[in-house]
């Protein structure tokens, strides 16, 4: 059961909130869901987390684990306008972000792996032996 992560506000929800609040006509397109921005999945032996980080290079992302809280932080640089350039529209948010996720199981910290591709950070956290599902034989 992965219930706890829904209690965390999503960066992308906030972006969505910002768009819809500044453009009332977009209200009918609201799709704020807990799956937006962060997806967490229990695949039996491991927990898989995917986080949307568009426009952010992997050098600008930091992943840390403290107790059972996984924290992803980093920053997205605002494009600098040159002379003769001007903003027509700016909906993408820039700046620092930090996101913490409570892990529902204990994990093997030495075996955590992460990859980043096409703006998605994927983290695989192998479960500790005691957290893995076990089948119980009925006698």
């Amino acid at each position: 059961m992965l219930v706890r992560y829904k209690t965390f506000p999503s960066l992308f929800n906030e972006i969505d909130e910002l768009i819809t609040s500044t453009h009332p006509v977009l209200n009918r397109f609201r799709f704020v869901e807990s799956t937006r921005g962060v997806a967490m999945k229990d695949s039996g032996d491991a927990i898989n987390i995917a986080i949307e980080l568009p426009g952010i290079a992997k050098e600008d992302v930091k992943v840390t684990l403290h107790d059972d809280v996984l924290t992803v932080s980093g920053g997205r640089k605002q494009p600098e306008l040159k002379e003769n350039e001007q903003w027509i529209r700016n909906e993408i948010s820039y700046g620092k972000f930090e996101r913490s996720i409570n892990l529902p199981y204990s994990v093997v910290t030495e075996k955590i792996s992460a990859t980043q591709e096409n703006g998605i950070l994927r983290i695989t956290l192998p479960k500790a032996e005691e957290a893995k599902p076990k089948e119980i034989t009925i006698k």
């Binding site: 977009l26 426009g55 003769n84 993408i92 096409n118």
Partner: peptide, 28 residues
């Protein structure tokens, strides 16, 4: 589960062009 998302957009006007940027993470 289908979701239709309107990607956030940045548009910058330069001297010779308009640069449109859309966040579409996870696509190839």
């Amino acid at each position: 589960n289908f979701q239709t998302i309107i990607p956030p957009v940045d548009i910058i006007e330069t001297k010779n062009s308009y640069i449109v940027k859309l966040d579409i993470p996870g696509a190839g």
